[in-house]
Computed example of a mutant assay.
Amino acid sequence: MITWLRPNDPFPPVKRALGASSGAPGLLAASTELLPARLLDAYRHGIFPWYSDGQPVLWWSPDPRMILRPSAFKVSPSLRKTLRRVARDPAWEIRVDHDFAAVMRACAQAPRQGQDGTWITTAVIDAYSALHRAGYAHSVETWYNGVPVGGLYGVSLGRMFFGESMFAAMTDASKIALAALVGHLRQHKVEVIDCQQNTAHLASLGAHEITRTTFIEHVQASVEAEPIPWRFDQTILLDFLASQASQS
């Protein structure tokens, strides 16, 4: 049985989440509301919401947990060539927090293999937009000739980044935003991006699974660190490419 959360109830320990043999491994709790304070508390405990429209809010803490270490981000030769062009061509821009809600709406509309509809409902957009206004949620956006063509959003606490979703309206546009994010996080010594659950796409970019225990230990230490700044542009890609070259 999962825990039903009333408005002021704390989350149960993550070890109570349903196991691999259940029909919903990682499911921990459910609630009726999705409030900013509840969201922040969830991330601080390694928990995230994921549910469909018409369902109660479902809270998850899977074991194992998919993460991407910025130091392990994989850049293919073709993407490296693209990043060099984007870093130098003024037609391309990386904008941070320019239109957070628009990024969420674009992510909601992005097709997902094997999925119908989206969990990014109006209520979800409202809740994360409140976190954005409070300085906890951020978007990294790829623009071309003044038009948004890709991006991502997530939650930043201390020196921990919790990735949520990406979209691309042009080839590699979301990967460009991710590379810029990785470059920024590397500069500020953020060691882990939470990717939540395993997908082949994430694995192709260098993500891998770790145990929930290891993940929670890292989260507990990282979220208490001094918050990192959130201001950069596409020139971050030059530093990122230079760091890649020095490691090869």
Rank of each mutant, 00 (worst) to 15 (best):
T3C: 13
P12Y: 06
S21N: 14
G23N: 12
L27A: 08
L27M: 06
A29K: 09
A29M: 03
A37C: 03
A42I: 00
R44Q: 15
Y51T: 00
Y51P: 00
Q55L: 04
P56Y: 01
W59Y: 01
P64C: 08
M66G: 04
M66V: 01
M66K: 07
I67K: 13
I67E: 09
A72C: 10
R85A: 03
R85D: 01
R85L: 06
P90V: 04
A91F: 02
V96R: 10
D97N: 15
H98L: 11
D99K: 11
A102M: 11
R105D: 04
R105H: 10
A106Y: 03
A108N: 05
Q109S: 14
P111Y: 05
R112S: 01
R112F: 00
Q113M: 08
G114I: 01
Q115W: 00
D116W: 06
T118R: 13
W119F: 04
T121M: 06
Y128F: 15
H132I: 01
A137V: 00
S139Q: 07
E141A: 06
E141F: 07
T142I: 05
W143R: 10
V147Y: 04
V147C: 13
V149D: 11
Y153L: 11
G154M: 07
M160F: 15
F161S: 09
E164N: 12
A168Y: 15
A169T: 03
M170D: 09
M170E: 15
M170F: 10
T171H: 15
L178W: 05
A179G: 09
V182W: 09
V182S: 09
L185E: 07
L185C: 07
L185T: 01
R186L: 15
R186Y: 00
H188K: 10
D194C: 11
T199L: 12
A200V: 11
S204N: 11
S204E: 07
G206D: 04
T214V: 09
I216K: 09
Q220E: 14
A221H: 13
S222Y: 05
E226N: 12
E226D: 12
R231G: 02
Q234A: 11
T235P: 04
L238Y: 00
L238E: 13
D239G: 12
D239Q: 13
S246K: 14
Q247I: 02
